[in-house]
Amino acid sequence: MPTVKQFERHLVAAGFPGARVRNTAASLIGGQVLPLSEKRGPAPEKLKPKHVADWGIALCLNEPLRNLANATQNYSTLKSPDGDRAGDAIAAILENFGKAKSQIQDGVKDSRSLRVAAREMNKRVVIDTSFPSITIATETPNGVKETRYGPIQDQPSSFIRVLHTCTISGHTLAHLAKALYDDATA
């Protein structure tokens, strides 16, 4: 798995502005959300799926850099009605893509991991940047299935307000997972 420095280019390739990626990384490292990848010694800390999930959340938030680590932790720990945390759910999506990638490399044509990853491509993570809420939506043959994380979980907010959201598609998550699990950056 790559270090923070090695992974920055993949976030830029996914469409996030380069300066924002670098500044967000510095803020999250300072807030101990991301590992310090340039620590002294021969083995710098590597990124894990949870780190990439939190970094993706942070890139979507419209917070000053000094508050970004705390805001990221607040969003990442939002809970669904089942008690699952948003950051863990996004990390699980990345892990599912990682399992499928290794099976594809091993020549497996059909497996549970590959079917799960195919379903993950139909997901999107919608982060409400003005109200602490994350929705993971899955396109199914029967319509959209949504899992909401945050204080209002059963339905969209009933009060009238302007929504400011950031969406991370399943395709983007697959791209990031491929980079995370790529042996060349290890």
Rank of each mutant, 00 (worst) to 15 (best):
I152Q: 10
L34P: 01
V126Y: 03
K5L: 12
A184T: 11
T165P: 01
E38W: 07
R112Q: 13
A117E: 00
A91F: 03
L28P: 02
A91N: 04
Q6H: 06
Q6V: 04
E63C: 11
H51D: 08
D88I: 07
R85Y: 11
V125A: 01
A58W: 00
E139R: 11
T138H: 10
G30H: 09
V4G: 02
G31V: 04
K101R: 12
T147N: 08
G56S: 13
A53V: 02
G18N: 13
G143N: 12
L47Y: 02
T185S: 12
T138K: 10
Q73A: 08
H10S: 14
N142L: 13
A69K: 04
H51Q: 03
P17F: 13
I152V: 14
E95H: 09
H171I: 09
G83Q: 07
V33C: 08
I127H: 01
G83L: 12
Q32M: 08
P141C: 07
H175R: 12
A86L: 05
D110M: 03
L94A: 06
T129K: 10
A186N: 14
I93H: 01
H175W: 08
Q153G: 11
L163W: 10
I168S: 02
K50D: 12
R161S: 11
N96R: 10
D84I: 09
V21F: 05
S111A: 07
K109Y: 00
N62L: 12
F131K: 05
P42M: 07
Q153F: 03
R119M: 09
A58T: 05
I168F: 11
L180W: 04
S27G: 08
E45D: 10
M121V: 06
G107T: 00
A91Q: 05
E38P: 00
F16R: 07
P156Y: 13
I134N: 01
V162P: 03
S169D: 09
R148M: 06
E139Y: 04
A86Q: 05
N122R: 13
N74I: 07
L176N: 03
Y149M: 07
H171A: 12
T135V: 15
A25I: 02
V33P: 01
A137S: 15
S158R: 13
G30S: 15
H175E: 14
L180C: 06
I57S: 01
A69R: 04
S158F: 09
K50Q: 12
H171S: 13
L28W: 03
S130I: 06
T135Q: 08
P81Q: 14
S130F: 04
D110S: 11
T135N: 09
V52C: 03
N142G: 12
S111W: 00
W55S: 02
F16P: 00
G18K: 15
L34R: 02
S113V: 06
G30N: 15
P156C: 08
V21E: 02
A13G: 07
N122H: 10
D128R: 06
T167L: 06
P64A: 10
T138F: 07
L61Q: 08
L61A: 09
I93M: 10
P49H: 04
Q32S: 12
